[in-house]
Simulated assay, not measured.
Amino acid sequence: MIVSLLSARTWKAHSFAYPLRTFKRQLGHLDIHIAFHYRLTAKLFEADVVCIDSEVCNKRRGNPFPYDRSEVTARARERSSVLLWFDTADHTGGTAFQLLDDLDLYCKSQLFQDRKLHLESWYADRIFSQHYHQEAGVEEAGAPPTREPADPSQLHKLAVSWNLGLADYTTFSASGRRWRVLTGRSGYEDRVQASAGPRELDMALRFRTRYGLATVSHHRTETDRRIRAFAEETDRTISPDGKLPYRQYRRELGRAKVVPSPFGSGEICYRDFECFLSGATLVKPDMSHIETWPHFYEHDVTYARHRWDFEDLEDVLDGLLDDPSRARAIAEAGQERFLQARSPVGGERFAERFEALVRRARDNAAGTSETRASA
Rank of each mutant, 00 (worst) to 15 (best):
V3A: 10
R9T: 06
H14M: 01
K24D: 15
G28F: 11
H29R: 13
D31S: 12
I32Q: 04
F36Y: 12
H37Y: 05
R39M: 02
L40A: 03
L44D: 03
F45K: 02
F45R: 02
E46C: 00
A47D: 04
I52K: 09
E55S: 10
K59N: 06
G62Q: 02
N63M: 01
Y67L: 14
V72W: 06
R77I: 05
S80H: 05
F86G: 07
T95Q: 13
L99F: 13
L99I: 07
D101H: 04
D102I: 00
L103M: 04
F112E: 04
Y123K: 09
S129A: 15
S129E: 01
Q130V: 01
Q134P: 01
Q134K: 08
E135W: 08
A141W: 09
G142R: 03
A143R: 14
R147P: 00
E148R: 07
E148A: 12
P149M: 02
D151I: 08
Q154C: 07
Q154H: 09
L155W: 04
A159T: 01
W162G: 12
N163R: 09
L164D: 05
L166H: 08
F172E: 04
F172N: 06
F172G: 00
S173R: 02
A174S: 10
S175A: 15
R177A: 11
V181Q: 02
R185D: 13
S186R: 12
Y188W: 11
D190H: 09
D190Q: 06
R191E: 15
A194L: 11
P198F: 13
R206F: 00
F207N: 01
T209A: 00
T215P: 03
S217I: 06
T221V: 03
R228F: 12
T237C: 10
D241M: 05
D241L: 11
Y246E: 06
Q248K: 11
R250V: 12
R251Y: 05
R251M: 08
L253T: 09
A256Y: 08
A256G: 02
K257C: 11
V259R: 02
S261A: 14
F263E: 09
G266N: 03
D272V: 02
D272M: 08
D272T: 04
S278N: 02
V283A: 07
P285K: 00
W293L: 12
F296Q: 11
Y303M: 14
Y303G: 02
A304K: 11
R305Q: 13
R307T: 04
L317R: 09
D318I: 01
D318R: 13
G319C: 10
L321W: 14
D322C: 12
D323H: 12
P324M: 15
R326K: 14
A331G: 02
E332W: 05
G334F: 10
E336K: 07
R337Y: 10
F338D: 04
F338M: 04
A341Q: 02
P344H: 07
G347R: 06
G347M: 07
R349M: 08
F350I: 07
A351I: 08
R353K: 14
A356N: 08
V358I: 15
V358N: 03
R360W: 05
N364H: 11
A365G: 12
T368D: 08
T368M: 00
T368I: 10
E370I: 01
T371S: 09
T371K: 01
